[in-house]
């Protein structure tokens, strides 16, 4: 088991390296001298030669690209992404400030989506090709087609402008949470509903289900005790994979509702040209995705020994 874990963990290293290269290079598309820009952003004055020189040495910008990259990487793996260009804080501080706010939005969305996706998915699969299934399928297509920022604005128009029921903006109280969560759920749930339906249908087409039905088991038991139970494993895997949306998962929703989470932070940093923050967010979101992948794989291996010996 340990060997399997070690092997899988080693396998993700090149991928993480690749992500780090992509995120680090973002800075190097910058023409001319980043040091000059940092001086301007930080001190709000025309950069003088000596200030630029000072920053250049302070930030290690005078070293060759490869050296800078390894410096950055060796710090990044320890969670140190340097200092923000526009604020007197470390990048990590800036990110950690926003993380709980993003988490609130994400977990609320996640919880609600999981529950309803399961319900809708099961209904859809059980009533395959009936009217209700078609509705669910159309919904799952609409969910990925309707832009969340438009849906958000429409909800604002209905609930804030017309009905004066809910605030269009703001953070951290329950009433502020409702519209963004609703908006995000619409698409988040759609993808999951579709997956639940597909997994359950696949399970229902297997031989043991036919056997169960043949021996006269009530359909309820067939679906819930047998098929759904087995289908739950891919479903749970898939759901846990989507935990990576925790970091910059809902940029558009956050922007529409001015939710001050990591998605908004990404957009703000892009506009402020605070590239270390952008780098860090790109890197972290990639790493989180890979890590989730790894964890899910390992869990699988724990449950199903075939996997760890098989390959």
């Amino acid at each position: 088991m340990l060997r399997y874990i070690a092997r899988r963990a080693l396998q993700i290293i090149p991928t993480i390296l690749g992500i780090s290269i992509i995120s680090f290079s973002l800075l190097y598309i910058f023409p001319g001298d980043p040091a000059e820009f940092i001086v301007e952003a930080r001190y709000g004055v025309e950069p003088t030669q000596e200030m630029v020189e000072k920053i250049r040495i302070e930030m290690g910008l005078d070293k060759p690209f490869v050296v800078q990259y390894f410096n950055w990487l060796s710090k990044a793996v320890r969670g140190d992404f340097g200092i923000s260009w526009t604020e007197d804080k470390t990048v990590m501080e800036v990110i950690l400030e926003r993380l709980p706010i993003s988490a609130e939005l994400f977990f609320a969305t996640f919880a609600i989506s999981v529950v309803f996706a399961l319900i809708l998915g099961v209904i859809s699969a059980v009533h395959k090709d009936k009217a209700i299934d078609h509705i669910c399928r159309i919904y799952s297509l609409l969910g990925i087609s309707i832009p969340s920022f438009w849906l958000g604005l429409i909800l604002i128009w209905i609930f804030s402008v017309q009905l004066h029921l809910l605030p269009a903006f703001g953070c951290c109280e329950l009433k502020h949470l409702i519209l963004p969560v609703l908006t995000w759920c619409f698409s988040f749930m759609a993808i999951k509903t579709r997956f639940v339906r597909a997994s359950l249908l696949e399970e229902l087409s297997k031989n043991y289900v036919i056997t169960a039905r043949a021996k006269g088991l009530p359909e309820k038991l067939v679906v819930f005790r047998h098929a759904l139970r087995n289908a739950l494993i891919p479903i749970i895997t898939y759901f846990s994979l989507s935990l990576h949306h925790l970091i910059v998962g809902s940029i558009m929703v956050e922007v529409v509702f001015s939710w001050p989470g990591l998605g908004s932070l990404l957009v703000e940093s892009v506009f402020k040209r605070d590239f270390p923050v952008v780098q860090a967010l790109v890197f972290l979101s990639g790493v989180l995705l890979i890590t989730m992948n790894l964890v899910v794989d390992l869990l699988y291996a724990v449950i199903d020994p075939r996997i760890r010996y098989g390959d």
Binding site: P100, I101, A103, E104, F106, F107, A108, F110, A111, V114, C172, E173, L174, L177, R229, L232, I233, I236, F239, S240, L299, V302, I303
Partner: peptide, 25 residues
């Protein structure tokens, strides 16, 4: 872990996430 445990634990996890999400308010 058995499959049953796996399902149980993840279910528990999901429930606690649900609780957490309202803590930040």
């Amino acid at each position: 872990l058995t499959r049953r445990d796996f399902v149980k634990y993840t279910g528990f996890g999901a429930a606690s996430l649900l609780g957490m999400s309202f803590l930040g308010c």
